[in-house]
Amino acid sequence: MFRAIVDNIKGLWSLIVGLSITGRFFFSPVKTVHYPRQVVDPESLASYRGPLELVPADDVGGSKCVSCQMCVRACPGNCLTVIKGKEGKAPETYLYDFTLCCLCAACVESCPTSAIRFSHNVYLTARTREELHMDLLADLKARAAKASQ
């Protein structure tokens, strides 16, 4: 009986300790990064694996890809479609289905010319499935155009 009373008083003290901790946190600043007003610092996204993008070989939107199909064969999710162009080795189409991609880096690591890499785009959103079916060559051209402006 006496022990139970002592136990309960100790227990009540532990409750007060708990209240003091949450009370302290109540007055400490919030930790949330309030997107879209704030964004995380880009340094922490330097190695983030976003959707794939092609590595530009020059300023006009050319790619380093030689259409060797290594990435297509390596991909576990079959999310890449590379069709070789009529002339030379450069690809005519480079389609990428982000809905199937598991971001495993099999393609990036198997590419003999290092022509693809992960973008660091954390903020990708899409309203439809089709928006995630990407044409990487068009994307590369668009980026080159944007850079030249």
Binding site: F25, S28, V30, H34
Partner: peptide
Amino acid sequence: KTAGFIQRRPGPY
């Protein structure tokens, strides 16, 4: 709001 501040987030915003 209280829950938010205790949990170090802004709550309704």
